[in-house]
Amino acid sequence: MSVVHLRAVVALLGRFPALAGVDLDVESGEAVLLQGPNGAGKTSLLRLCAGLLAPASGEAVVLGHDLGRDRRSVRREVGMLAHATFLYDDLSVYENVCFWARAAGGSPAEAEAAIARLEIDTRLRDIPVVRLSTGQRRRTSLAVLVARRPRLWLLDEPHAGLDQAGRDIVDGLVRDAVDAGATVLVASHELDRTRTIASRVITIAGGVVVADQPIPGRSMPVGPAPERGGPDVA
C-alpha cells in the first residue's frame, strides 16, 4: 500500500483549483523532491497530504486514510513544515516545542532532545521566539517536527532561511527519517541540494504532475530518466 495515493485529485483554494487533477503514488521509505514554478501547487499538494486541504474530487489516500472521508486521523501521523512557523510568538523555544510535543502525546524530554538535535543554542532556549532570527525560528519549527516523530514528513522549502549548518541538519533529518522507515516529501527550489537527499523528482505545473523521474544513485550524474507518468509532454 502506497503511503500517498492520489488519483485525479482536485483541490480548491476558495474558487481557485490549486490542484487540477493530480495523480501520484509515493511508496514507504521514499524521499521525493517536488519541484515546479511558483504557484504550481506544491504547497497545496503538501497541505492536501497533511489533511489540511480537502480534496474536492478524485481519490486521495494518505497513510491508509481516505481523505475524502476522514481528514483528521492522518494529521496525527504527519509532520508538516510550512511557510508559517506554527509557533506562538510569546512563548519560548522550549515552551513552543514542549506544547506541540505534548499535544502529540510526547513528553518534555522528547522536546529537549529535539531542541538538541536541531543544535539550537541553549542560551536561546528560554527566549520568546518573537525575538529570534528567522533561521532560529525555522529550527524551532523543525524541532517541533522532530518531537512529533511523524510517519510522513511534508517539508515546504525546508532550507529557506537557514545557514549552512542548518541546511546540513535538515539533510541529516531527512536521511534519518528515511532510514527509520518514514516517508518524506520535500518541496524545494534548491534542486542541487535537495537532489542529494531525494530519490525521485516530481515536477508540478498548473496544479498537475507533469513529470516524475527517479534519481538513480541520487547525487551521481546520470542522463535523463524515463518518465513514469503525467500527461504527454510532447
Binding site: G36, I204, V210, P224, A225
Partner: peptide
C-alpha cells in the same frame, strides 16, 4: 491545465538540467 502544459517545457527543462 492549459497553464500546466505551457509550463511543461520549462519545467521539464529544469528537471533535465538537474538530472
Amino acid at each position: 491545465l492549459a497553464e500546466s502544459t505551457s509550463d511543461v517545457t520549462r519545467a521539464v527543462g529544469l528537471t533535465k538540467t538537474g538530472a
